[in-house]
Deep mutational scan, measured.
Amino acid sequence: MEVVDPQQLGMFTEGELMSVGMDTFIHRIDSTEVIYQPRRKRAKLIGKYLMGDLLGEGSYGKVKEVLDSETLCRRAVKILKKKKLRRIPNGEANVKKEIQLLRRLRHKNVIQLVDVLYNEEKQKMYMVMEYCVCGMQEMLDSVPEKRFPVCQAHGYFCQLIDGLEYLHSQGIVHKDIKPGNLLLTTGGTLKISDLGVAEALHPFAADDTCRTSQGSPAFQPPEIANGLDTFSGFKVDIWSAGVTLYNITTGLYPFEGDNIYKLFENIGKGSYAIPGDCGPPLSDLLKGMLEYEPAKRFSIRQIRQHSWFRKKHPPAEAPVPIPPSPDTKDRWRSMTVVPYLEDLHGADEDEDLFDIEDDIIYTQDFTVPGQVPEEEASHNGQRRGLPKAVCMNGTEAAQLSTKSRAEGRAPNPARKACSASSKIRRLSACKQQ
């Protein structure tokens, strides 16, 4: 084909351009004929944790799935940006308080904090938690009735009371019990989460009196709706648990309003109706937990002794299953770290194939690490110290990083047969305790 000078094309009309061969290198194709290559998922490591896909996002930050490269346990990490926390009232204080509380709590029905990582340079905090497959609110939203069968609701409620009793025994008032803060594992274990607005009572406090509340409006008791200066913290949790039980068994809320002012007005009056299909035992329990006067409201001991709580409820309806993943529609909620794991395991070791967030990740503290002497050669063979940054567990980050890069360049065919977990650990520049 004859090559045409581009400067001469402006002298031709459209018809003349076609005659000189423009149609031979300008093609129009339908979008259905285009085959897009999927974007390669680059592996990203935060300390010893391999990052997966997004699980959810809230006002405080994002939650992603991660894999512990040492234990191969599935975890969830809450990623918090200090810049964003400053824009939220009491944001930083709530996060630090939640970390302090979770560090000393150990119960099967309370979410466990596994690790805390802090990135000084990017001003990011990573709260590594045990993995929960789904939230209770997500399960309720997945069915038209917006409720659980009585047998399933009873099982979840009993676990909620177990976890709540443990928190109260530790002198902690949750203040925000609701389905949105109750998570579930694949085995059906309920976990109380989000202790950001919780309050730890003084060890020598005479009672459970509280003065502040930041919980969700629909789950607040009349004493808070009416603006009382002080109130019983434990009875606030009992009320919120009662509203939660009402919601998961009926699909409704005892109090509603077009806006928060109308909602608080209705809560302050204390008038509500219980659907007739709840039955006398459940209705009596709800009335005891939603008692207007805090002094007359049920205690956890009274809830445990109630006939509806103690009764064994046979399954009359099919239980609400864990819904498919909202993004991938995966009904099994498979591990989202698998594509990243395959990338590390299947590809040659190259620095361009993975990302390490930083050479140094500070753990379990908000301060910069200490310094240790770096050896410097002298005339008599002895070495003197220069400062060298280290990880919180004493690992020399720069030395590990250099060693990792040197190993990656060394030709050794046997290394390709290593397991995925050992490869992740070798790529991680800074081991965590």
Rank of each mutant, 00 (worst) to 15 (best):
V110S: 02
R40L: 04
D207G: 05
D141F: 13
N247L: 08
T189I: 10
Y118F: 02
A389H: 13
A206D: 06
E351Q: 09
V116G: 02
S421D: 15
R87G: 07
M289P: 00
H107S: 04
D277V: 09
I260D: 08
E357Y: 11
L184I: 05
M129R: 07
M289D: 01
D237H: 13
A218F: 09
R333S: 14
E317D: 14
P222C: 04
N94S: 09
E223C: 06
E92R: 15
T212E: 15
R383P: 10
D365F: 06
D258M: 03
D30S: 15
K262E: 10
V20L: 04
K423T: 14
R333V: 07
S421V: 11
P315W: 03
M136H: 00
P254Y: 01
H313N: 02
K403L: 09
D350S: 02
A410M: 02
L427A: 14
G188S: 06
V143R: 09
F255H: 05
L164G: 00
I360G: 12
T13C: 14
E70C: 11
L85I: 14
G91L: 13
V63I: 12
D343M: 14
T395L: 09
H379R: 11
A295D: 08
D343R: 07
V20C: 01
P319A: 11
D359H: 08
E98T: 01
G15A: 05
G135L: 13
V63Q: 02
C134I: 11
E223L: 02
V320R: 12
C418L: 12
S232M: 02
L386C: 10
R409E: 14
Q399W: 11
Y340K: 14
L190Y: 01
L9V: 02
N247V: 04
N181S: 00
M127V: 05
M18H: 11
C158W: 02
H174A: 01
A205Q: 10
D343W: 13
K403G: 12
G270L: 05
V338A: 14
L285D: 00
S216V: 03
K403C: 03
L167A: 03
K175Y: 03
S378A: 12
D207L: 04
L54I: 03
P373Q: 13
T13V: 14
P387E: 14
D359M: 14
Q399V: 06
E223Y: 06
Q100L: 04
K41E: 11
M127R: 01
F264S: 03
L9Y: 14
I300S: 02
I322R: 07
K64S: 13
S213W: 07
E396A: 09
A200D: 04
R425W: 06
A200Y: 10
V34G: 07
S169Y: 13
V116E: 13
G288D: 00
K82P: 15
Y118L: 03
A414C: 14
A205V: 07
E92Y: 10
K124V: 06
P321M: 15
S232D: 07
L72M: 03
Y272C: 07
G10F: 14
F204C: 04
Q302W: 04
Y126M: 03
V4E: 07
G346Y: 14
T24W: 14
L167W: 00
G180F: 04
F231Y: 04
A318F: 14
V197A: 09
Q170P: 01
E199C: 11
E121P: 15
E357L: 13
Y253E: 06
K175N: 05
P339L: 05
L45G: 09
S213Y: 10
P339D: 13
L160I: 08
M51V: 03
R426G: 07
R75T: 04
